[in-house]
Simulated scan of single mutants.
Amino acid sequence: MSETASFGYRDVEAAEKQGMVRAVFSNVASRYDLMNDAMSGGAHRLWKDQFVNRVKPHRDERILDMAGGTGDIAFRLHRHGAQVTVSDINPEMLAVGVERAKKKGLEGLIWSEQNAEELSFADRAFDAYTIAFGIRNVTHVDRALREAHRVLKFGGRFFCLEFSTTTWPGFSDVYDVYSHRLVPRLGKLLADDEDSYRYLVESIRRFPPMPAFERMIRDAGFVQTKVEPILGGLVAIHSGWKI
Rank of each mutant, 00 (worst) to 15 (best):
R76A: 14
M216Q: 15
G71D: 06
F222W: 03
I135R: 02
D37R: 13
T4M: 10
P229K: 01
N90T: 07
A14S: 09
H44A: 05
R206M: 13
Y178H: 03
M93E: 12
T4S: 11
N36T: 02
V84C: 13
V55T: 10
T166W: 03
N115P: 00
K153N: 00
W241H: 10
P184H: 10
T166Y: 03
R100F: 04
W168H: 12
D142Y: 01
V86L: 02
K103W: 09
D123F: 07
K103V: 07
F163S: 03
T130R: 04
G240F: 09
F163H: 01
R146I: 05
S179Q: 14
A29I: 12
F213Q: 01
R205E: 08
Y178T: 04
R79M: 12
A220P: 06
R76M: 11
I217Y: 00
A236E: 00
A191C: 02
A29Q: 12
D142A: 00
A29L: 07
E61F: 01
G19T: 00
M1T: 09
D37M: 13
L190E: 00
H180G: 10
F154C: 06
S120R: 07
T4P: 03
P211L: 05
S30V: 13
F51E: 03
R218K: 15
G134T: 00
R124P: 05
F133M: 11
S6G: 07
R54G: 04
R59Y: 08
A43I: 10
A212T: 09
P229L: 00
G155S: 09
F25E: 07
G187L: 12
L189M: 14
S172A: 11
W111P: 06
E13R: 05
A95N: 15
G68K: 14
F171I: 15
R54T: 10
M20N: 12
L189C: 06
A95I: 11
A116W: 09
I204R: 01
E147F: 01
C160Y: 01
T165S: 13
L152H: 06
D127R: 07
R146M: 12
D49K: 11
L182G: 11
V21F: 09
W241S: 13
W241R: 14
K104A: 13
P57E: 08
V177D: 02
T70Y: 04
E147R: 02
W168D: 07
S203E: 04
M93K: 04
F159E: 02
V174W: 15
G155F: 10
E13P: 01
G232T: 08
D127A: 08
R143S: 15
W47Y: 00
V201N: 05
S26G: 15
S203Q: 02
M210W: 14
A15H: 10
